[in-house]
Design a protein around this nucleic acid. Structure first.
Lengths: 319, 319
DNA sequence: GTTAATAAAATACAAAAGTATTAAACTAGA
DNA sequence: TCTAGTTTAATACTTTTGTATTTTATTAAC
């Protein structure tokens, strides 16, 4: 019936129509496929994608008292400006979706016209950015906080920065370098050339920094890089418990003395302290340690995490 | 596990947790019932309610080109300030859900601190208000535009105003009278007494008016009232095609000369013209006629409707 | 024009959601 | 303490959803 205009243009109009019918009107997938004259399997696939890619966003308008309480406690204990706590899930991807949902909402209000937003990378940040509302930031810019992976993926530095810039309608500056250099010397060469230093300087002057962190288990993306994985035992030996911006930290939040930390191409964590709004977005109980280290060191002033982590952070704070 | 605190308090915390797990994390209802230690059927029921009562709101972030085009055309043709067009559905309830979704979003940005919001009633308005975000309006007030039904229902004047006032965190003023008086004389008595006049005067000075409209078929709530239903033939005979604020209009948008129009307790449609923002929220092709009449008369300056109606309005405008 | 590659439709089936019914637990009032 | 009324759990069953497989169009390159 409405096929000429609705099903064809780029598939985008079809997606929009399915979004309305399925998520707002509540039609069954069968009804939608009948009306639009396409296979039900296709409706099913698209309906799934819409949620995953952030085209359909859900907003929970019921406060969870236990989470609100933890938010207040964390603000107090670590002197944070803003904290969001979401329920815990035992599956990592589910957890990322919930944290991303809350982080997206937080960033929506935090980011203003004329600001420069610096951003790390990882699956959690990728999920958060997908939940943000698209807008046209006046004089906004996005700048990468760290080098990327050679091998492309959705969660790579370039993709995450690009996605964020697109969402905000802002220009994007990339750290065109690998996250770890093969040697300390090659790092020097890269920094002095190729404009990497200029971009890092720009990141240092950003208004909002969005970062995640990793522990030393294979659950963290960074540890899947070969050059990191093979040195995990060394790192653990000298007291490292995780990383932020590719820099490995000990339990007090200090960078450990290790070649990897000397060869990393990223803003040093300590420089985050100079940025007005620095948000750590990270959840999962196995990351509680490194999150605690980062908060103790005062690298960030905003936090988005899950209930179980928040509980442990509050409990350990008594020590 | 988390039962003490999460399942008990008023059921509200349980609802919040289900909302997160089901709509954000994407757990199955079985997984949620296991984790929370309650029956799956209960999770199923609550998950359904959450959508229906506006605790979980979905936001479609894909523009429908055909609808945007119609919005622009309608603005032009009828000189409207703001128009929202959503896809059409053949089921009335689905249609109301979609229109309510769009209307809620429009009202969210339109309503400001310090404003007085006047509101009619009906199923469409009820659905719209449920989609609005709850907030604490500074010095805001809500006032009813018309009398209610004796028999209570979710879509009655008192319920709709109350709900809106609660959502906005505002005071509420009711028109404590039936929508139609048994006689013209009793109307006079009611108006001069019982503060109804004062409330109507307040409505006249409101900043935003939210209204719906009805046609003369049984699909419209108003026509199910006995006193209206039995006089439908008369109304049709003298050219009435529908109503706004309980006042029956002809195709040009003028109030018809009929006892019902003399006994109605509501603000006259013409007074809407003096209100800075007046929003007509109504969809369904069978209402196209009356919507057209209202727009032609210039009673409102904002419109939320569906695609099929919008198309017809634009097409008929050529005549 | 033929062919490989891709996308969509058709089909079938297992998992999950929705719904009704009955049994059990709980609550408020006598 | 009992009883009527209400809420929740347990169960069974139907519809809808998610997914894999095969077949049929469509497209692009040769």
């Amino acid at each position: 019936m409405l096929n000429d205009e609705s099903t064809n243009p780029g598939g985008e109009q079809l997606r929009a129509r399915i979004a309305w019918f399925y998520y707002v009107a509540g039609l069954t997938q069968q009804e939608i496929s009948d009306r639009l004259g396409i296979a039900r399997a296709r409706v099913n696939k698209i309906a799934g994608q819409l949620r995953a890619d952030g085209s359909v966003v859900v907003d929970i308008r019921l406060p969870l008292l236990s989470c609100i309480k933890l938010e207040e406690q964390l603000k107090q204990v670590f002197g944070l400006k803003s904290v969001a706590v979401v329920p815990s899930a035992d599956d990592d991807e589910q957890q990322r979706r919930m944290i991303g949902d809350a982080a997206g909402a937080l960033l929506d209000v935090l980011i203003q016209d004329g600001q420069c937003i610096s951003v790390g990378w990882g699956r959690t940040l990728s999920a958060s950015i997908k939940q943000m509302r698209t807008r046209q930031l006046k004089d906004g810019s996005v700048v990468s906080l760290m080098g990327g992976l050679t091998r492309g993926s959705e969660t790579n530095a370039f993709e995450v920065s690009t996605e964020l810039a697109k969402t905000l309608g802002a220009d994007c500056y990339y750290v065109t370098a690998p996250i770890y250099c093969p040697s300390i010397e090659s790092r020097e060469i890269l920094l002095t050339h190729s404009g990497v230093n200029e971009v890092m300087e720009r990141a240092r002057r950003s208004d909002v920094a969005i970062v995640s962190c990793g522990d030393l288990t294979p659950r963290t993306k960074l540890t899947t890089i070969y050059s990191v994985r093979e040195r995990l035992p060394e790192l653990k030996d000298i007291g490292a418990i995780g990383e932020i911006l590719g820099t490995f930290l000990d339990a007090q939040g200090f960078a450990v003395d290790h070649p990897l930390n000397q060869s990393v191409i990223a803003m040093p964590p300590a420089d985050l302290k100079a940025i007005p709004n620095s948000i750590l977005i990270s959840g999962g109980l196995y990351k509680a340690e490194i999150i605690r280290a980062i908060l103790s060191a005062g690298y960030v002033n905003c936090l988005v995490t899950d209930e179980a982590v928040a509980e442990r952070l509050v409990r350990l704070a008594g020590d």
